[in-house]
Design a protein around this nucleic acid. Structure first.
Lengths: 340, 340
DNA sequence: CCGCGTGGATGAAACGTTTTAGGAGCTATA
DNA sequence: TATAGCTCCTAAAACGTTTCATCCACGCGG
C-alpha cells in the first residue's frame, strides 16, 4: 500500500525533489554521501518509480509492441522470441498483441498502442492494403516495421521472407514428384503471405507445369481446424478430380489436412502428398513427417526489432530498409514418393 | 506529427478544456450541439488521448499482464487466449510477458509491471516459493492471480488443475498396462507443476505399484529439445534397466522423447510407451498419437482473468478464491498396448 | 581582497489528463 | 418579482516525474 512518491523520498532523505530525480537518472552528478542517503530512503519507503509520470514528461514510452496474427501459431511465437531478445537487450519491454486475423481487433490494438505512445510497433497486418490506423501511427512519427510482408510500401521498414520463391519451391518439388492435380489450401487471401505463396506456386506451374492443374481452396483462417474442414471438401471430390498433392499456406493447415486424410483411411503421401509452410517444430514430429518451406523465424523477429530500434534512435535521418530472407524447402516423408 | 492535446481541441472548438474531457468520458452531460462541435475538432486535429496522462491522474492503468513460462508452449498460448477473451470484454488490454522459465527475467518483468502500475497480474511463477517482487506487488495492492499453481498461499487467488490427480491418472494407466519400470521426465522441480505431477505419480505407484519402480530423470526445461536429451540418457541404459514406459511432465518433452525413440529405431508403444501432459493440439497429430493428460486450458485463462477483474473491482472486501479443475486422461496409441 | 569558475543542490515549470467546486443563464413556481 | 432548481459549462487543482535555470558556498588565481 506504500505508493510513496519522489517527494516523500526527498523529505525522508532531507534533500530536494530534484536531487532524488538526479540520483535516479544521473547518479554521478550527485555527491556520494547524498546519493547514499537517498538510496536508503528509497529502499526504506519501498519507492517504485511511476512510469506514467515519467512517460508523460518524456513524451514516449519504453515499450515496443508486436502485433501478430495468431499467438497460438508456433511461427509467430518464434518470431516473438527473436524480437524479445533484441528488445530486452535495449532495455525496453516487448508486449505481444494478438489480432487473431481480425481487422477490428487489430485496429483496436493499434488505437490503444497509439494512446500509449509506444516507442514502436512490429506488425504482421491482417490486410495488405493500407490500414488507416496504421497510417496514423506512422504519421504521428511512431516507427512501424512490417513483419513477414512483401517489400511493401515506402513508409516503413520491413522484414520478410520471399514468399513467392517459397511457393515456387514447393510447387516445383511437387511437379518433379510427378503430380498433375495439385491443390493450394490457404486463406484468407487478404493476408499477403497467403496470396504471395499462391502466386509463386501459380508461376511455377505456368512455367513448368506442362498442363498440370492447380485448384485453389480458400480457408477462413490459418489453423488446424480450418485445414481439416478444407480437406473434407477436397476429399469429397470424385477420385479422378481429386488432387494428388496439396500445398498448404502454413503448417497448421497442413497438419489439419494430414489428420483428415489419415482419418479417412487414406495414405500420405501415396494417396495425397502434402507440403506445408513455416517448418514449425511440430512439422517434423507429425504422424507423417511434414515437408515444409522453412523460414528463419527467430531471425525475422530479431531483424525486425533491430530495424525498429534503429529507426527510433536515428529519427528524421532514417532511411527505410526492406530486408528479405530466402526460404528453404525441407523435404520429408509427406511428399516423398520414393518412400511412400 | 500531430500530437494535438486536449487544450488545442478545446480552443479549436471554442469550449473549455474540461468540456472536451467531458465529451470523452461522460458524453451525456454535454449538450448535443457542443458535443458535436468538439467531436469535429477531435477528428480534424487527429487528436488521440494520451494514456500516460490519463493514468497518472487515475493512479492505475487499464492493462493487465500475464506472465507465462514459455510463449512458445501451446499450453500457455491457449491459456493466453482464454484470458484475452475476458480481458477484452472488460475493455482492458492484455499484455503477454515471457519469463522463459528464468527467475531473473521474471523479476525484471514484475518490476517493470509495478512501475507501470498495471491493474493486475496473472502469473505462473518460475519458482513456487515466495518471490519478493511478487510479494511487493501484492503489498502494493495490485491483484495477482496464480495460474496453474497448486492452491498456494492465502495472499492471492489462484486457478489450477489438480496436478497430483493428473500424475496419478497417468501412472495408474501405465501400471494397468503392465509396466514395471517407469520413468518420470520433467524439470526443473522448482516449477510447482513438475513437482506435483511427480508426486501424484509416486503416490499411485506406492498404492498400487506392487513393487514397480519409478526412475526420475530431471530436465532443465520443458521443451522438445530437453525431452530429446533426456531420452538419449534413458535409452543408453542396458535393456533390462531401461524403462518400458515414460511419463512426461508436459507434451513438448513427450514429443522430444517420441522423436528420439523413433530416431533410434525403437517402436512406440511396443518398446517404450509414452504419456504426456497438457494434451496440446499437436499431441493427437504426432507421429504416434500421444496419450496425454488433458487440462481445460482456455477455461483456465478465462477463470483466472475473471478472478482478477473481480478482485480489482471489489477492492478491500475481496476474499481470495482458489479454483481447481479436474484433469482427464486421453489414451491414444503411444501408451496403448492393445494396438501396438 | 576581489572576482570567478565549479561541483552540488534547489525550485519551479511543464507534460496532458481528470475531477471538483462552482458560476452563468434559464425556466418554473410561489 | 424573488427564489429555487436546472442544465451546461468553466476554472483550477492535482497526479508524479524530468529538466532547466539558478543559486550557494567554496577554493583559487590574480
Amino acid at each position: 500500500m506504500a505508493a510513496a512518491n519522489i517527494k516523500e523520498v526527498a523529505r525522508h532523505a532531507g534533500v530536494s525533489l530534484g536531487t532524488v530525480s538526479n540520483v535516479l537518472n544521473r547518479p554521478d552528478t550527485v555527491a556520494p554521501a547524498t546519493r547514499q542517503r537517498v538510496l536508503e530512503a528509497i529502499t526504506e519507503l519501498g519507492y517504485v518509480r511511476n512510469d506514467s509520470a515519467r512517460q508523460l514528461r518524456a513524451g514516449q514510452s519504453r515499450t515496443i509492441a508486436i502485433v501478430v496474427l495468431d499467438v497460438a501459431n508456433p511461427f509467430f511465437t518464434d518470431v516473438v522470441r527473436g524480437a524479445e531478445q533484441v528488445v530486452e537487450e535495449a532495455g525496453a519491454m516487448l508486449v505481444v498483441c494478438n489480432s487473431g486475423e481480425d481487422s477490428a481487433r487489430e485496429r483496436r490494438h493499434l488505437e490503444l498502442l497509439e494512446e500509449q505512445r509506444v516507442r514502436g510497433v512490429l506488425i504482421t497486418p491482417v490486410r495488405h492494403g493500407s490500414q488507416p490506423s496504421l497510417d496514423r501511427l506512422i504519421d504521428r512519427g511512431i516507427p512501424v516495421v512490417l513483419v513477414d510482408r512483401g517489400s511493401g510500401r515506402a513508409s516503413s521498414c520491413s522484414v520478410a521472407v520471399d514468399d513467392v520463391l517459397g511457393g515456387r519451391l514447393a510447387m516445383e518439388h511437387l511437379l518433379v514428384q510427378g503430380h498433375r492435380r495439385i491443390a493450394y489450401l490457404g486463406g484468407p487471401f487478404s493476408i499477403a503471405q497467403v496470396a504471395e505463396r499462391h502466386a509463386g506456386a501459380a508461376a511455377a506451374l505456368d512455367e513448368r507445369g506442362d498442363g498440370a492443374e492447380l485448384r485453389v481452396a480458400t480457408t477462413t483462417s490459418l489453423t488446424v481446424a480450418a485445414g481439416r474442414r478444407a480437406a473434407e471438401d477436397l476429399l469429397a471430390l470424385p477420385a479422378r478430380q481429386r488432387p494428388t498433392a496439396v500445398f498448404c499456406a502454413n503448417d497448421l493447415i497442413a497438419l489439419g489436412v494430414l489428420q483428415e486424410v489419415t482419418a479417412r483411411g487414406m495414405r500420405v503421401p501415396a494417396d495425397v502428398a502434402i507440403v506445408g509452410y513455416d517448418d514449425i517444430e511440430f512439422a517434423g514430429a507429425a504422424a507423417v513427417p511434414l515437408s515444409s518451406v522453412r523460414q528463419p523465424r527467430e531471425q525475422l523477429g530479431r531483424t525486425a526489432a533491430q530495424l525498429l530500434l534503429e529507426e527510433a534512435e536515428s529519427g528524421e535521418t532514417h532511411r527505410h530498409r526492406h530486408v528479405v530472407f530466402q526460404p528453404e524447402l525441407i523435404v520429408r516423408r509427406s511428399s516423398d514418393q520414393a518412400h511412400p
